[in-house]
Simulated scan of single mutants.
Amino acid sequence: MRVSCVLTIMFSCLVLTNCQSSSGVDDVLAQRPSQEMTSSVVRPSRSVKRIAMATIPPSPVPQQEILAWAGPVPESAAILPPAPSPVMAAPTERPVPQTAPADPMVKAAPQTRMQIYSRRFRDAKPINFGPASPKKLAVHGVDVSRWQGDVDWANLRTQGANFAYIKATDGGDHIDPMFKTNWRKAKEAGLKRGAYHFFYWCRTAGEQADWFIRNVPREPGALPPAIDVEWNGESSCKRRPSRAQVLEKMQVFMDKLEKHYGQRPIIYTAPDFYRDNLRGELADYPFWLRAVAAHPSKVYPGRRWLFWQYSGSGLSHGVSGRIDLNVFHGSEEEWHNWVTARAG
């Protein structure tokens, strides 16, 4: 009886103990987060979030965007906080289209038409060209070299020199000593000007092209470069290449100049050289023809021309001695259009 009572009491105690311990385990498990939750979403505590915001500096991107929209910011405004997004979102307030362009060439003022001065030259050996007189053409000019000395370009322009071709080089190692001065002063006086090269038949065409390019600047608005091809009895080079060789050498020279200056060169020539080498050739090139005794249509039948050198004995205020006189083949309006097309 005593043993059975004891056993009964012990059994009752064990049952009570198991019930309490089971309830405690359930409570602990209920406080743990789900393994699925912790493996897929990281939720840092509030204290960690405050530390991260305090130690990481604000991103500079918003401030850069404001500078790009609003232009340079004075030092006094550099410490101000970034502007709120509504201001940045107003596209009509962006001043970018009003800022100066980066390319300085775009800043140039729109080109205005140059004033055309009427011809007031005289001639030491005047020629009567009849109805085809160069006086009937509107735009006259000159070509010069060292032999004209110190030219008063402003005075020469008022006499009718609206354009000038200036000797720059000849051969592969000679530069006209007055070229730089004439090039600068002619521009200052308001003339349209171009440079020409006297071709030397005893040097390679490539050498001569390189020499010209080395000495003649590439300037917007300059007239096309010109190549002077003629037989020169006074030259130390007595060589006279064949027609095929002449054309080949000229083509090499002109191709290099056109590539460098972006304009097709003009060919200056005289009657005898033209007859021997250029008749019927190079139809795609502009010609500058010497014809001091008759109209070009008689001296160079069938040849289209751009400039006509009608005198080698011109006289004018602004230059001592004689000067070559030239005229553009077209009206004043056609001159302006031709020049404008080469102003880039």
Rank of each mutant, 00 (worst) to 15 (best):
D276W: 15
D255T: 15
N326E: 04
I213D: 05
G302R: 08
R218C: 11
K167D: 06
I166T: 02
G194M: 03
P286T: 02
G206T: 12
L257N: 06
A54M: 14
F273R: 05
L14T: 12
G194V: 07
P33L: 12
P86S: 09
K249S: 15
P57Y: 07
K259I: 10
T158E: 09
A161M: 03
I116M: 03
A186K: 07
V216I: 06
W183I: 04
I166F: 01
V3E: 09
M1Q: 12
N128D: 15
N326S: 10
A189Q: 06
D228P: 05
P97S: 06
W288C: 00
V299F: 06
K107V: 12
P241R: 13
Q245E: 15
A108M: 13
L247E: 05
S118M: 09
R275Y: 08
V73I: 15
W288N: 02
D173S: 10
G302N: 06
V96S: 14
Q111C: 08
A161E: 01
L282Y: 07
G233C: 00
A108V: 07
I56N: 10
L247T: 01
K107Y: 06
G130L: 07
I166P: 00
G233M: 11
V96A: 10
P84F: 10
V42P: 00
W201C: 03
S311Q: 01
T112W: 05
A226V: 10
P177H: 08
W147R: 08
P57Q: 03
W288M: 09
G318I: 12
G302Q: 06
M250L: 15
Q31W: 04
Q309A: 00
R184C: 03
F163H: 01
N162V: 01
N232L: 10
A195T: 07
V292T: 14
K167Q: 13
Y165G: 02
K185D: 13
W305D: 02
A161L: 03
K187V: 04
R322W: 12
Q20L: 11
G172D: 14
P74S: 14
R243V: 03
A54D: 12
E234Q: 13
L191W: 04
K259Y: 01
F253D: 00
E207F: 10
A293W: 04
D170R: 14
Y274A: 04
G312H: 01
I213L: 03
F199M: 15
D255P: 04
E248T: 13
P301W: 08
Q208F: 12
D176H: 08
R146F: 11
C202P: 06
R94L: 07
H329V: 00
I56M: 06
D150H: 12
Y274S: 02
S59W: 02
A54K: 14
D26Q: 13
I175Y: 05
L223P: 03
A89L: 13
E188D: 15
G190P: 04
E281M: 07
I127S: 00
K136Y: 12
M1N: 11
